[in-house]
Amino acid sequence: MTFVIDILLLAMLAATAITITRLRSLFAAAMLTGVYSFLSACWMTALDAVDVAFTEAAVGAGISTVIMLAALALTTREEKRPKHSRILPLFVVCATGAVLIYGTLDMPRFGDPAAPVHQTVAPRYLQSYEETHIPNVVTSVLASFRGYDTLGETAVVFTAGIGVMLLLVRSKRLKQDRKSKNNESEEPAQDNPKKKDPKNHIAENCIL
């Protein structure tokens, strides 16, 4: 039963990815990216990764779609028709894909309990209940065994937040400068009803 769900969800993921490639409307592509994230969250639930599915549904399908829609509102919604030929990228992608598929041929089969991934540190984590007293092993690894890793992650998110803030605040200031410059140059030519009262104009500038 799990295997049927697995095959169906993966087929839907592939169909969504192809549709995203073919769409020229960026708004539709952003919404489909949300659908894609949600489908992958469903698939992760089927494969026992419940914590990851939870995060992917909240962060991947939720926050990332919102961020993308905000970026679309500030830029444009339509993609232009590409001018280059598609043959070279298609060839590069097919060649890379073929090499990668050749690389999977000696991978351990799906769900194989004898795979090397399951032999080293994972059994140790699964027996750690006496040490940490947390039934959810993912939580205990995240917050206890690999706590420094999570601290580093927090630092990355903090840095990214500062980066976004610096980029967008600076652009806001530039826009204001440009607007005030335009106002100065347009003043003598146009008869703006707001400009009749100079006090009102100054007050507006102060608020801005």
């Binding site: 990764a49 914590d51 990851v52 995060t55 991934v117 540190v121 994972a122 984590y125 699964l126 092993v137 993912v138 690894v141 995240l142 690999r146 890793d149 999570t150 992650e153």
Partner: peptide, 9 residues
């Protein structure tokens, strides 16, 4: 659980 933790990050 290890791949789950890595991907969560």
């Amino acid at each position: 659980p290890l791949p789950h933790v890595l991907i969560l990050t």
